[in-house]
Amino acid sequence: MLRILFFARLSEELDCREERLALPAEVSTTGELRQLLGQRGPQWHNALHSAGVLVAVEQQVADWDRPLNGDEEVAFFPPVTGG
């Protein structure tokens, strides 16, 4: 199972901080996962495609073509603003 996390603005807009998902056969990368989640509705699509959204796999920022095998921790979040 994938463990999917959402942070900050994304978790508010999606009303979801965390979910588990069995990786569907047609999804093999972070970009395809984003596409799949985006199909849940305009809110999901807009939040996940908003400017500068980042994805991290196993707590490391990754590209949108990063392969997934189905048991990773994947996080989506907006540009960071700490400090």
Partner: peptide, 11 residues
């Protein structure tokens, strides 16, 4: 680098 890479968010 902390400001641009560390995953903190301010509301």
């Amino acid at each position: 680098f902390l400001k641009t890479q560390a995953p903190f968010w301010k509301r």
